[in-house]
Amino acid sequence: MSHPRTAVVTGASSGIGAATARRLAAEGFHVFCAARRRDRIEALAAEIGGTPVECDVTSAESVAGLAAAVGERLDVLVNDAGGAFGSGPVAEADTEDWRRMYEVNVIGLMQVTRALLPALLASGAGAILNVGSTAGRTAYEGGAGYTAAKHGTKVVTETLRLELWDQPVRVMEIAPGMVKTDEFALVRFEGDRERADAVYAGVAEPLTAEDIADAIGWMVTRPPHVNIDELVIKPRAQAAQHKVHRQG
């Protein structure tokens, strides 16, 4: 009797994380839905037959609790917990916003990976998939705190791949461009709906969380010898960070 495949998705309370948890459950994984908002992950876990784990990735103690809940073996880890806070120029940067972005997008990702790596190795064919961003590749005005953090995500991923080259675990990154989710832009602009909506103004079809989850589902279900190092994914309307087709 083979064990059911297991997956951990951080940031599972909304957006890409929630969509990914649903997608992996559809692929036959038992999903540990990890996030800070207990009510959200309890509802999601009930919907997909997974396990909710209240977890703040920036807290080592909280992450240790996640590792304990997962147990001795794990097939897939999707590090999706992240976020952008603020959009001021460097000259007016909010130190706390920058610190929060680094804590969640880099330190948090490291802590979760470090805690779950023994279980991933124990599976004999583990997969680590980090959710980066095109912001981890291209600078843009007003984005320095976020672009710095997401460049961090990218480089941690590259370093992990080098360090784990002889181990039975794959290390991958997906780097989405413009994705319209319920909360991402709203969080960035501190609840300013008008500014959040302006990001997507005139863009007929930005990517959805489901588009990204679809790609993640494909990446982590390749045969164990196939490592999708990085997948950059953007809507057709977005040729580059600064070049977006807007109608009207």
Rank of each mutant, 00 (worst) to 15 (best):
F189P: 06
D211P: 07
R36C: 05
S13D: 00
G145L: 07
D80R: 05
G50W: 00
Y102F: 10
R40L: 11
Y102G: 03
T113S: 09
T147G: 00
P206G: 04
G191Q: 11
I228R: 02
A26F: 02
G17S: 08
G11V: 07
V53I: 09
S87C: 03
L116N: 12
M178N: 07
P176L: 00
A215E: 06
D97E: 14
L77V: 10
A68G: 13
R100C: 07
V199E: 06
T10P: 12
E61R: 13
T138S: 12
V169D: 15
A240S: 15
I128N: 07
Q111V: 08
G248E: 13
S123L: 12
A185F: 01
Q167E: 15
E54F: 06
A45M: 07
I48F: 06
H30E: 15
R73A: 11
V232T: 06
G71S: 10
G11P: 03
A12F: 03
G191V: 08
L116A: 13
A91V: 11
L129M: 10
V203Q: 03
G126H: 13
F32R: 04
R37H: 05
E54H: 03
R188A: 12
D94V: 01
H225W: 14
Y102D: 02
D94W: 07
T58A: 08
E163L: 15
G248C: 04
R37K: 13
